[in-house]
Amino acid sequence: MQVTSAIDIPEKPVVHSGRSSARAAKDIRDGIAARELWGHLGWQDIKQRYRRSVIGPLWITMSMGVTAAGLGFLYSQLFGIEVDTFLPYLTVGFIVWGFILGCLTEGSDAFISNEGLIKHLPAPLTVYALRTVWRQTLMLLHNMLVYVVVLVLFFGSISKSGYVLSPGGVGQPGLSWTVLLAIPAFVALALNGAWVTLLFGIISTRYRDIPQVINALTQLLFYATPIVWPVDILTQKLGPGDWKHLIVELNPLYHFIQVLRAPLIGSEQSWHHWVVVGVITVVGWTLAFAAMRNYRSRVSYWV
């Protein structure tokens, strides 16, 4: 891909050499500062994907809308749940899952797919990770149009205090000013998407089986995560104190989805979701920084 002259490129090549914490930190700082570059590249990815399409990126929105509507009506009948409250729950779950899935699958392939640019463009490695996260953010923003439509249609149901996600489930507080918590929740999600892309992207350049392993595991993770089924159903089947609840609680993706989904649908907030997300963010960035310090100099050779 050719980068237009409108993008400012450093005059001196960035040397990816040596195991140094200072160089790793500089790579991350310079990558964040080059927002015009990764912003342009991420937007070009979206335009390239839907080039010569009549409605362009709106296909992202239409695809999400059809999937959410179809599965929402199907699973609401299977579980005996009111579609008025279940469809917003499932729609937001799908939107957040799409962002997480993109960071996992495309993030693990970030440096491999940018082989040509890494070898010829004098830019920090962090640029390619941020390019991936920005691309997923643009797709999420397109999908949020579906959320707006669902919100307009079912606002009365999910704004009512005490509404339930499943028969006999816990009453939810309903939409309120807490919807603003979705902003820091997405920031936390994006921060984690960045370290996931850096860490798995570096590992995948050395071990090319990693992207295939991640693709295979995401199928299992999807069904093990409360996206198309509410946690209330599991509680009713097993009882509140059953150890099998650990299947959900030990799934980190559940906590990431819940911190963003809960405020958007007026669901009950829980502090422990934020604690888990915070701990994973710190640990993840520590591992990503260690990978950058030790192996960033080898990425250009491994790709």
Rank of each mutant, 00 (worst) to 15 (best):
G169C: 09
L130W: 08
Q136Y: 09
R29E: 13
N114F: 06
L189C: 00
S17C: 06
K160C: 06
S113Y: 02
W229L: 09
Q258E: 11
M144T: 06
A69C: 10
H273I: 00
G39P: 08
Q236P: 10
L121Y: 03
S176G: 09
Q269T: 06
A194Y: 14
L125C: 02
S166Y: 15
A216M: 13
W229Q: 01
I202M: 04
V96Q: 04
Y295E: 15
W38A: 06
V54Q: 07
V277Q: 04
F94K: 00
W59R: 00
P122F: 01
G65Q: 04
H142G: 01
V83N: 09
S300Q: 12
S21A: 15
G42P: 06
R261D: 00
L58I: 12
Q236K: 03
S108M: 12
D45F: 09
M62Y: 11
T235W: 07
L181R: 08
I100V: 15
P252R: 13
S157G: 10
W59I: 02
T132W: 10
D84E: 15
W243K: 12
A69G: 10
I112W: 10
S108N: 10
A188E: 02
I227G: 01
W195A: 02
W43S: 14
S270G: 07
W134C: 14
H16F: 12
I233F: 05
T4R: 02
T105C: 11
M292I: 07
P230T: 01
T126A: 15
V248C: 01
G193T: 11
Y295C: 06
F86R: 00
D45P: 05
L189F: 02
Q48D: 13
R35D: 14
V170L: 07
S297T: 14
S17P: 08
P252F: 10
S300R: 15
T85K: 04
T235G: 01
L153S: 12
A68D: 00
M292R: 08
G39N: 03
V282W: 03
A291P: 05
G18S: 06
N215K: 12
G31K: 08
G266N: 07
T105A: 09
V303D: 06
S297W: 14
T218M: 13
V248W: 05
C103G: 03
F73L: 08
N143P: 01
L90H: 01
W274V: 00
V283G: 08
R206P: 11
E36M: 14
P173F: 05
